[in-house]
Design a protein around this nucleic acid. Structure first.
Lengths: 325, 325
DNA sequence: CTGAAAGCGCTAACAC
DNA sequence: GTGTTAGCGCTTTCAG
């Protein structure tokens, strides 16, 4: 327990070779090494239960094999799914992921990034909480932004097709003949959500449909006023978990979907797979977004300046439900 | 971009002091330092935008300020919540969390642990996928196990009161006069789940109630046979997300809860907050478990051999619903 | 109050 | 095919 960890020197001495040779073994430079020494070293390592010290290696090679993942809100299920994708990609290259929580706070995000830079991470994956591109552009290590589009074209980013798919969804809703749209979301805003709202609004305008924005943070009771004695209404719920909440609320107040109200939503996960009725939705694949972002980052780390400012759109899918009528 | 990062030496030269003095500044050893030099150094650091190199510091001090978090399944919402608790605690001590996914696979878990040891993490938090205590006991750095109880008393662990609370829940269900229990869970087993099942079984036995175990992995259709023309039945759903699935299924087959069937569940999150009806449940607090485990680990890191083998039980709460009748 | 210098464990020229 | 050696950036005695 208290005895020191074996170093490369211990292995070298036990195997009767030099540190260099052991180092070569560790880095798989077997090319110029007799099978005999290779086996001796292998044996010595096993015997001592030797493990390379990544700190030392990092100091020498200037590569930590650490990736920083800065998520806007880790308690959001979106974060787990992105993490999975990122971890899946990087685990095959023996990189480890340090995840931090910005908690939707810009200051915390900057602290997180600064911390990660001290740890000399080889790359950064950021779900940005702000649109503060000057700060983001000042980051000098390979970085890929996730989920929330940023205006600057200098910054590599992997996002989904928010505007177009939302437009498509809204247009489909229109075909059902709704005369009023209600958009339900949380006050806290971000660029991805803004694009969705904008698309819905644009479609509404083109079709002379009245749109009201409503915050789930507020008491849903207020919503009732909007619904009673109003024209045929469709509700867009911008966050998966809010669907459950809203459904329960409607159920309690004897509103039926799709008979009294139409509903459509955006789903990062399978929230609506088990609801009644099935909700018309746009489904995105956060794990895929994470995986692709990680892949891009890995490229930017291993061969810099190649696609370092790619913008990748991971398409989402429109899934039919029976929540419109 | 390509220019080298400033080192402590650059700061020292700019501030006209020695590396030692800068190092003292960095480590807040202000006690024996003139205010003048302190300010000069502060200024130089700002000017160069200097950041300490943690790899170098780690090599020297033998402390990485890295914590390894090995979770059985990161796509499970439980993992996010635990992570939050762990991150909340350790962020105040400037430790970073490296999270890895064992994917419910023992081999993967061992690889993960081995990787983390190479990175010289200062401590380990493990949600174990096996009961392989010999291997776990061979780990020589501070380690705390989470969620799934391990037999060995040598190992520090933070878990919830699975057996007792499950017993309490089952006993409550019994008072409603159910004559049959069905336990719904996933085939994949672990010690925490086993304890819950055992408690329910024990209560059933004591009350001459027939219990059937049913896997959600299988087609739920089979479940119907068990329900039609059978005595008054209560269903225990062992995983929050499965509640949605099961409710939707019952709804589709015109079974009403609580009129036709009773239901009780275990909830890591607010899965059942928005269901109809509200489900009788045991609610645990994974974030709290993570926080407490992290606290214990931090203690074990900073003052070893004090509580290094504590067993902490974080109580869960029985929450009344209207799913029993 | 400050500095000189050794050394943490490893890698990579360069030598042989 | 293998070894010598310098040095990555930092902390820490020890000396002044």
């Amino acid at each position: 327990m208290t005895k020191k960890k074996p170093t490369i020197l211990d292995v070298a001495q036990l195997a009767n070779v030099s540190r260099t040779t052991v180092s070569r073994y560790l880095n798989q430079n077997y090319s110029k090494m007799s099978l005999a020494t290779k086996l001796t070293i292998e044996q010595a390592i096993k015997q001592l239960n030797y493990q390379v010290n990544q700190s030392a290696r990092a100091l020498k090679t200037n590569r930590t094999h650490l990736i920083g993942l800065v998520m806007a809100d880790v308690t959001n299920f979106y974060a787990s799914l992105v993490f999975k994708g990122v971890a899946d990609l990087f685990s095959s290259f023996n990189y480890q992921i340090i995840m931090l929580n910005s908690n939707e706070d810009a200051l915390q995000e900057q602290k997180n990034i600064s911390q990660l830079l001290q740890f000399q991470v080889d790359g950064l994956l950021i779900q940005p909480v702000t649109k503060n591109t000057p700060y983001y552009e000042s980051i000098t290590i390979p970085t890929v932004f996730i989920d929330r589009p940023l205006a600057s074209s200098h910054l590599a980013q992997v996002v989904t097709d928010n505007y177009l798919k939302s437009q498509e969804l809204a247009q489909k809703v229109v075909t059902f003949g709704y005369h009023q749209f209600i958009i339900l979301h949380q006050k806290n805003s971000n660029s991805a959500r803004d694009l969705r709202i904008q698309a819905i609004n644009d479609v509404a305008l083109q079709n002379n449909i009245k749109t009201t924005i409503f915050y789930t943070d507020d008491d849903l009771q207020h919503l009732l006023k909007l619904l009673i004695q109003s024209p045929k209404t469709a509700i867009f719920v911008l966050k998966g978990p809010d669907v459950l909440k809203t459904l329960a609320f409607f159920h309690a107040h004897n509103f039926n979907i799709p008979n009294n109200i139409g509903m459509a939503t955006f789903d990062d996960w399978n929230w609506t797979n088990f609801t009644f009725p099935k909700i018309e939705k746009i489904q995105q694949d956060p794990t895929k977004i994470g995986f692709i972002a990680a892949k891009l980052l890995h490229q930017n780390i291993t061969s810099p300046r190649l696609n370092s400012n790619s913008h990748i759109i991971v398409p989402s899918v429109l899934i039919t439900g029976n929540s419109l009528k």
